[in-house]
Amino acid sequence: MVRIVYLGKFADWAGRDEEEFEAPLDWEGLAQRVEPRIAEELRGDRAHISLDGVVLADKQALSAKDGSEVALLPPVSGG
C-alpha cells in the first residue's frame, strides 16, 4: 500500500488527513483516485508532491511502491 498524506486545504477537500491506495502508484493513478479538485490543483505549477520526503521536480515522474509515502502539498499562500 502507498500512504497518501493530505496537507493544508487538500486535507479539508479530501475530508481526511491521509489514506492508502494500492501499490504501485504513478501520476495518472494518483490523479484518478484523489478528489477531482485536488487532482486539478496538482496539475498546476504551484502544488507539489513529495515521495518519501523528497519533493519531486516532475510530478508526472511519480513512481510509488509498496510502503511509500506520498504527500500532497497545496500552494503556499502569504507573503
Rank of each mutant, 00 (worst) to 15 (best):
E41N: 12
D66H: 10
V34S: 06
E20G: 03
G78L: 01
D12R: 09
P75E: 14
A23P: 05
G79D: 11
G29Q: 11
H48F: 12
H48D: 08
S68T: 08
R37I: 09
G29E: 10
E22I: 12
H48G: 06
A61P: 03
G67D: 12
E28F: 04
S68F: 03
G53T: 00
Y6S: 04
G29H: 10
W13L: 15
V55E: 13
K59G: 13
L72D: 01
R37Q: 15
R3P: 02
A31Y: 05
K9R: 15
A23Y: 01
A39P: 07
V76T: 13
Y6G: 05
F10N: 02
K65G: 14
A39N: 07
G79E: 10
E22G: 15
E18G: 01
E41W: 14
A23E: 04
P75A: 15
L25E: 01
A31I: 14
A31N: 11
A14N: 08
V5F: 02
E35T: 07
E69Q: 04
L62R: 03
P36C: 11
L51M: 14
W27T: 01
L42A: 02
P36Q: 08
A23W: 00
K9E: 10
Y6K: 05
P24Y: 14
A14T: 08
G53V: 00
E69R: 06
L73S: 09
D66M: 08
G78I: 07
E22F: 12
V76Y: 07
F10D: 00
V2A: 09
R3F: 03
E19W: 01
W13P: 03
A71P: 06
V5D: 01
G79I: 13
L62W: 07
G29S: 13
P74L: 03
E28I: 06
S63M: 02
Q32C: 09
P24G: 13
D17G: 13
R16G: 13
V70K: 04
P74W: 05
Q60Y: 06
A64E: 05
A57G: 05
P36D: 10
R43E: 13
E20N: 08
A11C: 05
Q32T: 11
I4H: 06
V34I: 15
G44K: 14
A61C: 03
L7G: 00
A61W: 02
I4A: 07
E41V: 15
P24N: 14
L51K: 13
L56N: 06
D66K: 14
V55A: 10
R43D: 10
G29L: 12
G53H: 03
I4S: 01
A14F: 09
I38R: 05
A71I: 00
D58W: 00
